[in-house]
Nucleic acid binder design. Structure first.
Lengths: 113, 113
DNA sequence: TCGTTACTTCGATCGTCATCAATATAGACG
DNA sequence: CGTCTATATTGATGACGATCGAAGTAACGA
């Protein structure tokens, strides 16, 4: 078990400027790219499926079956979200378990405040 | 004054399913399309500019000048955000003032919880 | 070592969308 | 009515990205 992850890798840095400050173009672009990571129906379904899974994490094959998409497609989405810090990645033998990083998800939602 | 708008038109309906519930494909798509509305750097800048404006609203020409983009481009973004309920639209003579609908913006951020 | 299973990477395709120029609408003012 | 100004609409283009099939990598078991 050991639910403590070994650190979610070098994070892409949130900054979390929010809309209150005057947004520079660079800030606006970085905020937009972070929002775009979760602005896809398949990715939202992945997050929802992982969240509702009993283990709090899912394997690639699980998600592939539940989504009805090809496995490379699912791996692609998982990679993008893991790189954005939204998902954690934990290899176990041949399998890889993906879990949610709730703080990161909340931070993205807070970008609109 | 009378800051009460005459109702922001037939709203696209939020639903706000959040990630806690198991997301159907249709729910995931509607949530994603709402998130996509604000997942653009120019739109985030528009929101930030309006928010930081003294009147709490901006005219198309104001935003066009501040963004350094063509007027039809700005009008396009304003239309999309207004249709999504994120902006209010108030014509005044030849001019049109666009303001923020904060509750709607918060609701979008809450979709990730 | 061989085959099988689980996942990742690569390359191509197709649709969506941000932006533009051109044009249309519409209010203000003479 | 004409003219100027402010905004909206239309149509075209270029870029990005979701998805797929094919091929690569890696772990487990016989």
């Amino acid at each position: 078990m050991s639910p403590a992850q070994p650190a979610p890798s070098p994070r892409p840095s949130v900054e979390s400027p929010s809309l209150r400050a005057t947004l520079s173009r660079a800030q606006a672009e970085s905020t937009a790219s972070l929002l775009r990571v979760v602005s896809d129906p398949t990715r939202l379904q992945i997050l929802s499926l992982i969240r509702s899974s009993p283990e709090g994490a899912s394997r690639v094959a699980d998600l592939t079956r539940e989504l009805g998409l090809r496995q490379p497609t699912v791996s692609h989405h998982l990679k993008v979200m893991a790189e954005a810090g939204v998902l954690t990645r934990r290899p176990a033998g041949r399998e890889v378990w993906y879990g949610i990083e709730p703080a990161r998800l909340d931070a993205i939602g807070d970008l609109l405040r």
